[in-house]
Structures are given as C-alpha cells and as structure tokens.
Design a protein around this nucleic acid. Structure first.
Ligand SMILES: Nc1ccn([C@H]2C[C@H](O)[C@@H](COP(=O)(O)OP(=O)(O)OP(=O)(O)O)O2)c(=O)n1
Length: 454
DNA sequence: TCAGGAGATAG
DNA sequence: CTATCTC
C-alpha cells in the first residue's frame, strides 16, 4: 500500500534520495570480515580478495544504430519495437524520453526525436559478440543479456601488482556512501545515479595516499576498467559504464552511478552504508513479485531487510531467495563469474492485435518459422548443435501465457498451426472470449550433435 | 506489472 | 509447464 518508491510528493522525494545511511543494524565492514570463499576461477579466495568489474554499454541499441549510420549521431534517437521506444540515446533522455516509453509520449517530449526500428535483433547480437570478445581478454567473463558483462579481473590485478605495474591512481569515480544515490526514473529503482557530489567528500580519481591490500587491488581494477572501456570505445566503438567492486552484486549496483560513459568503484568499507538505504528492488533478483511480498512484511529497504531474521525471510520467500537476499543485504555475494557459452535456446516471437481468426495466426507463423529455422542453421554452422524440442507458447488477451512442447518437427509452421487449432478447439466458444494476441516458437535445448566442431 | 522481444532458471 | 526474473 504505502511507501511505494514510485509515489509522488515531497515525502517520496526524500525517500527517493535513498541517501541517509541510517543503518539500523549490521556493522559497516561485513565485507572485510567475510570469510566466505567462492568457487570457480578464483576458488578459495575470500570474497574481499576478488576484483569484479561490471560493464554496461550505454543506450545499447541506440549506439549500435549510431555506429551503423553516423548521421544519427548528435541527434536525439529512439529505437522502436511496435509502438514502444525500447531505448534511446542520451540526447533523447535529456529531452525527457525514457526507456520503454510509448512512441506517442516520446514524440510529445521530443518532437524532433528520430526513430529507428529495432525489431531485427541481428545487429545487436553481432555487436554483443564483439563487446564480449573485447572484454574477456581481462579475465573470466560472464555475459548478461546483450550489453552487460562481468569480468573477474582478480588474476590480472594480481599480475600487475606482482610486476609493480601500478600507477597509484584511482580512475573514474570512487563512491562515497555519504553522497547518497537516487533513481532518475521513479519506475526504475534499479537504475541508480549518484546524487550531486559533496566536494568535501567526493573523489573523482587521481593520486593520493599509496594504497595497500584490498584498496590497492580495487585501485588496479579501476585502471583495468578504464583501459577496457577505452578499448571498447575504439574498436567496436561503444561508450560504456563500469562498476568495480569485490563482488558481482556491488559491481553492478555501482556501475551505473555515473552513467553515461564513466565508471565507479566501491571500496569495501563503503559498501554497507551504500546499500543500506537502497530500495530492495534495486538489487538484481528482486523483481515485481518479491518486492510486493517484502512490502507486505513492511520491508522496502535493504537495511530493513537486514533486520529480518533468516528463518522469517525463508517463510516469506523460500529458502533459496531468502539465503541470497540475506547475504546480499549485507553486501556479500560469493557467486563466481561464470563463462556461460552459447545460448541454450533460440526463440522468435510476435504479438499482434487480438484475433481469433487462424489466417492471422498462420500469417505470423509463416514468418516466425523460417526466422527460427534460419537461426538454427546459423547455430549449427557456428556451434554444431541441434534442437530436440519445439515449444509453442501463446497468449490470449488478458490471459496468462500457456505453452506446449513437441519433438522438433519437420514443418515448424504446420506444428504451430496444429497447436493453435488444438488450443482453439479446447476453448469454450462463448462470445466475447479473449482472443489470441501473441505466439512464440522456441527451440530447446541446443545440444552438440555427434561429430560436431573440429 | 500497459507496452515488445528475447533469454535463464526454479519449482 | 508455469512462474519469476533479467536486459
Ligand atoms: N526490458 C528491456 C530491457 C532492455 N532491452 C534491450 C534494449 C537495450 O538497449 C538493451 C540494454 O538494456 P539496458 O537496460 O542496459 O539499457 P540501455 O543500454 O539501452 O540504456 P542504459 O544506458 O540506461 O544502460 O537491452 C529490452 O529490449 N527490453
């Protein structure tokens, strides 16, 4: 009910500043005290010894289009899918356009907004590969979606320290929790921004005291992040933001604080005060449902989460989520950076004005099926894999999605139609019944066929 | 979740 | 298969 981070008014403005580190409980140095160890590439190292960088390309689709067509640069640009501006460049954002805004609204905010269709994701997938390739040279890398990459640079950091290849400089911003953070879009509390910096406490890089131990490791991490972002800007040609911290959770949380085209480091002793005032929804993993459940228990911020005993949290959210959140609320996150390899499924989907006539569904399937098959052929050429199962998912207006699977058929479109007919036959034919408004074809799992590669 | 489109993972 | 979450 109350205390939505999305409410209006003064009280909310204050809350939206997430600034006051009025930590209710928990010490301020959980991370340094943490003795948990991780598995994977840096297995055996205490959490605080890792150096993790989270990279996020700014306004990804928009930058891809700007690189493809230089005439789009220096103009407000929106990328569309159906009637949505799915993302836009930062010139458009200055004019008030936001991610996932309706085209009509975006045009009102910014009449000169240039629109480019982003319905074909192929160029973005290609760009994504280049980005990943450029970043993975710094250490084990994990791709999240198309434009984000975690890199565990612990070894690279250690190597530089061993060689004495340090410059004793902090690169980019070093976050100070006293400066607080906000969210520029009230509907997106996960997109954090640093509040106006207090010059007395803010730090924007440069040299200072000679650092040692964990601080030195992070400092070297900021040099690596700067180099990597410079490389990205030169070769594939994308500006990006980055977060440098001791684990994935914190690196991602601070990574966007000085977006666009800048980086932020979070020293271990700032972590607790930094996350305490954040809304729980800011943490990746806390979505719509979890936020609501926590709200029902009067929990909206991370420090409130800290105060709830684990067993009570488990009853609310289940043991797994509770365990993760309990750690996360204290700034701890032992999840390793994992190299995932190629995707395990390929899907194509289209939505349309609700329609029960089969001709529409058939028309859509006759486009989707060849699209899917093309991508499967490409995947086979690239990775020597094939799919065993076809899953058809559909949605009726106002209803939840439903799906059914079958062995991968010869004729994908025909299988889709068969499913559509079966679904229709099983529905009562009452007038005014909601009609189908989206279909999705998914090939899964993608497994190596014998004699592949090589 | 008001939308579009893709992918992962838990139960 | 469904629910939830992510970008
Ligand atoms: N619900 C979503 C979220 C993201 N994307 C796509 C469009 C984005 O360009 C890309 C990356 O998502 P981000 O959330 O990182 O957003 P941007 O990179 O566009 O902008 P920002 O500079 O805020 O990171 O993924 C999408 O299609 N649908």
């Amino acid at each position: 009910m109350t205390s939505q981070i999305s409410k209006k008014g003064l009280e909310d403005f204050r809350r939206r500043q997430f600034a006051g580190p009025n930590v209710v409980c928990g010490s301020s140095d959980e991370i340094l005290n943490n003795t948990a160890t991780t598995t994977g590439p840096t297995k055996g190292l205490p959490d605080a010894r890792r150096v993790i960088i989270h990279f996020d390309v700014d306004a990804f689709y928009a930058q891809v289009e700007e690189v493809r067509d230089h005439s789009l640069r220096h103009k407000p640009l929106g990328i569309t899918q159906k009637y949505l501006v799915v993302t836009c460049n930062y010139l458009a954002r200055e004019a008030g356009v936001t991610k996932l805004m309706a085209i009509s609204e975006a045009k009102k905010k910014c009449p000169h907004l240039i629109l480019v269709s982003g319905e074909d994701l192929t160029p973005y997938r290609e760009a994504s590969k280049l980005i990943y390739g450029a970043l993975k040279i710094y250490g084990p890398a994990e791709k999240l979606g198309m434009d984000e990459v975690y890199v565990d640079v612990t070894r690279e950091v250690q190597m530089r320290i061993d060689r004495g290849a340090m410059d004793n400089c902090w690169h980019g911003h070093v976050h100070c929790a006293r400066n607080g953070v906000t969210s520029d879009n009230i509907h997106r509390p996960m997109d954090l921004r640093a509040s106006a910096a207090d010059p007395a406490v803010s730090q924007t890089g440069g040299a200072g005291a000679v650092e040692t131990g964990c601080r030195l490791r992070l400092q070297v991490g900021t040099a690596i992040a700067r180099e990597a972002r410079a490389a990205l800007a030169r070769c594939p040609g994308f500006r990006s933001s980055a977060g440098v911290a001791h684990n994935k959770l914190l690196a991602k949380l601070v990574g966007g604080l000085h977006k666009p085209d800048d980086q932020t480091c979070l020293p271990a002793d700032e972590a607790s005060a930094f996350i305490a005032p954040l809304p729980v929804r800011a943490m990746a993993g806390v979505g719509y449902k979890t936020e609501r459940q926590l709200q029902d228990a009067q929990i909206t911020t991370v420090d409130q989460l800290r105060c709830l005993p684990l067993d009570q949290l488990s009853k609310l959210l289940g043991a797994r989520v509770a365990q993760f959140l309990s750690e996360a609320a204290r700034g701890r996150d032992a999840r390793p950076v994992e190299e995932k390899g190629p995707p395990q499924s390929i899907s194509v989907e289209d939505s349309f004005k609700a329609c029960s006539c089969f001709s529409k569904v058939e028309t859509v399937l006759r486009v989707l099926a060849p699209d899917l098959l093309r991508r499967l052929v490409q995947d086979k050429e690239e990775f020597g894999r094939r799919a065993t199962t076809l899953r058809v998912t559909w949605r009726h207006q106002g209803a939840k999605r439903a799906s059914c699977s079958s062995p991968m058929p010869q004729e994908v479109a025909l299988q889709g139609m068969a499913v559509a007919h079966k679904v229709q036959a099983e529905r009562p034919h009452a007038a005014g019944l909601p009609e189908m408004c989206s279909v999705d074809l998914r090939a899964v799992p993608l497994i190596s066929s014998r004699g592949a590669h090589r």
